[in-house]
């Protein structure tokens, strides 16, 4: 099972806000095991989806170089549930960024109706956590492409978001290196 709790980005304004979509389907394992007979999408995974949306929004501010972890769910309020067939829209706004962390405010809609809100605190880890990135750059680039980040992403001035050069170089390197 892949730990992606969003399907694609619908909007991404660098350093400001990101909106992602998550379509709920009965084919997903968590819906089988979570309250059997009452299939709905766990709120904990909506929080994770918001953390991924906000985490990528934050990570992009330094060309995806920082090690970012969700440090605290300050608030998570839900008004209703999401069932198979529903579309969840996750809107993350980067409201505060410091050298060692950031705060993201999130709002959630299900089928265009407000469903909840949350506030997440992220930590940006320093060098004491090692110099290796959390994700292999070429793999991460592929994930971001899959999420349509670079299709919809723009800078605050409206110009298209570019894939960081070192990420592109890593991707080219991975694609042109013969498998062992």
């Amino acid at each position: 099972m892949r730990w992606y709790w969003l399907d694609r980005f619908e909007k991404f304004v660098a350093g400001e806000e990101a909106i992602s979509l998550k379509n709920v389907t009965l084919a997903e394992e968590p819906l089988d095991d979570y309250l059997p007979g009452y299939a709905h999408y766990p709120h904990s995974l909506i929080i994770e989806g918001m953390a991924q949306t906000g985490g990528i929004l934050l990570s992009q501010t330094n060309d995806f170089r920082d090690k970012i972890v969700l440090a605290k769910v300050s608030k998570a309020e839900f008004d209703c549930i999401a069932r198979p067939g529903d579309t969840i829209r996750l809107r993350a706004v980067l409201v505060n960024r410091q050298a060692d962390g950031a705060i993201v405010e999130g709002s959630i809609e299900v089928n265009d109706e407000p469903q909840g809100r949350m506030e997440l605190t992220f930590a940006i880890l320093d060098e004491s956590y090692g110099s290796e990135p959390f994700f292999i750059p070429s793999d991460f680039c592929r994930v971001l492409r899959g999420l349509c980040l670079f299709d919809v992403g723009v800078n605050p001035d409206g110009s298209p978001l570019q894939i960081p050069e070192e990420m592109l170089a890593a991707e080219i390197d991975a694609l042109t290196t013969p498998c062992e």
Binding site: A71, K72, S74, N96, Q98, G101, I103, T121
Partner: peptide
Amino acid sequence: ESIDFLDIVFKLE
């Protein structure tokens, strides 16, 4: 904890 101060400062601001 240290990460809470980020949140506290933000809320005070």
